[in-house]
Design a protein around this nucleic acid. Sequence first.
RNA 1: AGGGAAGUAGCUCAAUCGGCAGAGCAGGUGCCUUUGGAGCACAAGGUUAAAGGUUCGAGUCCUUUCUUCCCUGCCA
Length: 567
Amino acid sequence: MTDSNNRNFVSEIIDEHNESGRFEGRVHTRFPPEPNGYLHIGHAKSICLNFDIAAQYGGLCNLRFDDTNPAKEEQEYIDAITEDVRWLGYDWGDRLYFASDYFDRLYDMAVELIRIGRAYVDELSTDEIREYRGTLTSPGVESPYRDRPIAENLALFEKMRDGGFNEGEAVLRAKIDMKSGNINLRDPVMYRILDARHPRTGDKWKIYPMYDFAHGQSDSIEEITHSICTLEYEDHRPLYDWYLDNIEIFHPQQIEFARLNLSHTVLSKRKLIRLVQEGHVRGWDDPRMPTISGLRRRGYTPAAIRDFCDEIGVGKVKGVVALHKLEYHIRQDLNRRANRVMAVINPLKVVITNYPDDLVEEMEAVNNPEDESAGTRLTPFSKVLYIEGDDFMEDPPRKFFRLAPGREVRLRYAYFITCNEVIKDDSGAITELRCTYDPATRGGAAPDDRRVKATLHWVSAAHAVKAEARLYDTLFSVEYPERDSERDFTEFINPDSMKVVDPIYVEPHLRDAQIGDRFQFERLAYFVVDEDSKPEKLVFNRTVALRDQWRKHQNKAGKKRKQRRKR
RNA sequence: AGGGAAGUAGCUCAAUCGGCAGAGCAGGUGCCUUUGGAGCACAAGGUUAAAGGUUCGAGUCCUUUCUUCCCUGCCA
């Protein structure tokens, strides 16, 4: 389904390169995550872009971890990220790389820059470096250590490497231009001393390269042609280019695109990690999280995520994509692949008064009207049933076509029934409906061609399996939780983002459902079996509700009523 | 003494060399239906941020203006 032949500004740039012969027609990209958190839907956009555009041009895409800061990075994240990229359906072959693989070569490149007089060891403190850097509107001042002799720099850099300095006592800086309007060019730090154990290189290094000094050269080493990154690196491109030009190695093209923003959620690692650490969600893979693992547990499919990324395209305009677009694509995909089943979430007991007490009939039901090969199943029907509470109204408004006193509706794949009596408890709450059925309508069709306006789902009370349902809503109750400058985004967390309903009643054959199985509960929503499920206790996550015209209608009517009242 | 980037329909994006401003989604109106789902049909939606210029012709080229975003980590 995913047809990733979208034209965009990136493919235009590649076309120009192919015409000019800059990379001899080669296209080689990379996806470069830092292993300091879990991947989210925004990363999916980048993953799809990098892998798909390479594939489009018959090229390759590497997976490379940007692991230059051991203070923040962990093996757990490396494993999770690898799994997520693979789950999305992408294959990097044997090209799994780490920036840390290049630490020796990066070190040699730094020495080379010192040798040609373009890098120096600075012993200013962190605060001093910040002061000397100047501001956005005023130039910086050169460090007193800037013009040390090359030999001294060489010796000092070695001393940094060998642990002769403590953290913060010295850095290696590129000698560029303290007066540049681009602050990244005001003698940027190349290496800092970090007293941390690296997940891959262990205790070998005391010094670690900064992102800017590692990324471009890593691209170069891997002979990446198009290094695609997000817009906030636009200001870094001159530095990216400066390192490559001065070290005189293969020079990829950096291209920046607008990262994804999604309504009703947050997509920054810093904020996502807070949601996890402060306990607002149950973990990185909480089904309310916009992480890949969260979406997976929520029941999203790789295809839906890829189609979504394909639809939103790629440009240089920062915007916010409405969440309903993501939901559109998961409905689209699940409509094709999810088997239908009947389940009642808000049960209302129905007794068919003219149905034999002990009779049980097996009704044939279609598993997936969109996919004939999914076949049919048998589901039991008996005298006492549950229907959805929302499918009955004692005093229905116009346009409510479902069950009401004296009205006839169809029970899907079963019979027409007519409601004759409403039983209530002492408080006046409806506890039971007494209905009669028409035996001639078995299977749901009337021999006399009489029509009913609604078809309801149902389960047989004696046969239904009890299960738990987790009904999710948006994690935040506002569209843009980050927009308020006074209030922290966590204040906008939706208190109803998860509602647990236990029990719900599902068709008996669902007893055998396995973790990860996806279903459409007819007329309600798509659900997936959660990993918390046990054979004796199924747990379903609501992936996404079906589009609900009735509710839309109600909301509209409600608004109109309100407006009328205002007048 | 600041540097960088972006403005096309409600949202996300197209528009070939300068040649009738389009699509998907959302919203609207109908149709259909053993899911009020899915599906189908139709209509609507625009001063292309603004002004000026070049041109037979400008979303596209030039000039100016406006708005929004990013940049002062030894994070990436």
